[in-house]
Design a protein around this nucleic acid. Structure first.
Lengths: 251, 251
DNA sequence: TAGTGGTCTAGACCACATA
DNA sequence: ATGTGGTCTAGACCACTAC
């Protein structure tokens, strides 16, 4: 009944109480106090823990839910969001078949072309907030739909958090790669930004995607971030857009 | 002091009260009871009008604000969103210069190439929820940055709501086209969806964008909707991505 | 000073899921 | 029956804006 985990509400600090609560919950998420897919404590429990009203906790969780960090399920609880969810699988992949029938087409067939350790070039280092020459992993893979190679991806990961990642482990994993990152390396991708251009493939890329050298392709450069906006992946994708398109909703 | 504009809260219907309030406010927005840029009544006024608590009105407005239909300004009021706002200008345009310095580059130079009335083809009619052969307007324009033609747009508008739109009026208007649609035709674009592909230009397109015929370009097909998800514009853009890129944030 | 939206609380009741 | 999140209310106080 004495010092709460929290700055005294009587000294309102500078940010609203619910923002402070949100930050505290975020810290627990980041620290791994609750694992992806698991429920976090109920609103009442959190309210007691932080010595605020349930309504204040609710507003904090509302914002976390809006940012897709947690998932509310009525009657059951609030759960730590995960890329392994069936409903939100491939959250970051916006390429959809022209038919619009995502389900009929089934999951992509995935081929790991390559996975090697190397030293970060200047631009890779900049994107991952590393220093040039730091250890990184580079993965190249191809995704095919109905036997048609459609996506060629090169991705770079910081060496330290992904120590032990090999082509074999990539081939062995079933679901989305980001789900594997969560389960095996404790790295949760929370937000990403993409820069999209139209390009022509080089000879090797054309071969891997089975297209002519003059076929225009989407170049999608993605930087994915974990908590605190820490960049944890640089991904350069080449998308064929003869049977698929990149879909974007503008609110 | 008798019949409220609202179903009796004692008969809760099937959707939450705040959703019903939201729908009623939406109707007033759609009917033009308050014009773009103007304030809507205060939360207290709306609560009295609908005979619910201020908190319920607040939650309804919260959702409208999250959907960018209204804009809250502390201490001043809640305002009908508009495309003419300085801060949210070009809400739907995701092409940004590679330098990232949007401001330094200044607004685009706009050239109206063409504006004509014609009959809707099958695909245009489908996108605009019209019948093939219905009257539509077609506009073609080029946007240039620092003298470099960068965007070539063809857009189709339903004939009826845009009666009286001419190339002259387009050339005369200053701000974003969507702001002009609001002010001159009472049509507010609220939501849009885009399908993006990589393509090669035809001869005419290459000429207008001043690029070689084998230059890959982004094809951005946008359908913009007004209230009630009514499609009101089909726009096909060709973007040069040598100095700009399409930027997308994935939450 | 008055009015607006923003925060915080406390309590009642509802809808859903589980045991 | 119990516990969860979801809705609704009422009232107090804060922060910002305008006059």
């Amino acid at each position: 009944m004495s010092t709460p985990t929290l700055p005294d509400p009587a000294t309102p600090s500078f940010s609203p109480l619910y923002q402070q609560i949100k930050a505290l919950i975020l810290q627990s998420l980041q620290a791994g106090e609750w694992k992806p897919g698991e429920p976090i404590p109920s609103e009442m429990d959190l309210a007691a823990r932080f010595r605020v009203s349930q309504g204040t906790v609710r507003k904090a969780i509302d914002e976390l839910a809006a940012e897709n960090l947690v998932l509310r399920r009525q009657g059951k609880g609030t759960f730590v969001a995960t890329h392994a969810e069936q409903q939100v699988q491939y959250r970051f992949l916006k390429l959809v078949p022209d038919s619009g029938d995502t389900a009929a087409e089934g999951p992509a067939e995935r081929t790991i072309v390559d996975c090697k350790r190397l030293r970060a070039s200047a631009d890779v280092a900049r994107a991952l907030a590393l220093r040039t020459g730091d250890a990184v992993l580079q993965v190249r893979r191809v995704l095919a739909y109905a036997g048609v190679p459609t996506i060629l991806e090169d991705l770079w990961l910081p060496g330290a958090p992904f120590k032990g990642l090999t082509a074999e482990r990539l081939r062995a994993s079933r679901g989305p790669m980001y789900a594997m990152f969560e389960a095996e390396f404790g790295v949760r991708m929370v937000r990403a930004e993409e820069k999209i251009r139209a390009v022509l493939p080089d000879a090797e890329q054309a071969l891997l995607l089975d297209v002519a050298a003059n076929t225009p392709l989407l170049s999608v450069e993605r930087v994915a971030h974990t908590y605190n906006d820490t960049p944890m992946e640089l991904r350069r994708g080449l998308y064929r857009t003869d049977t698929h398109h990149y879909r974007n909703d503008l609110g």
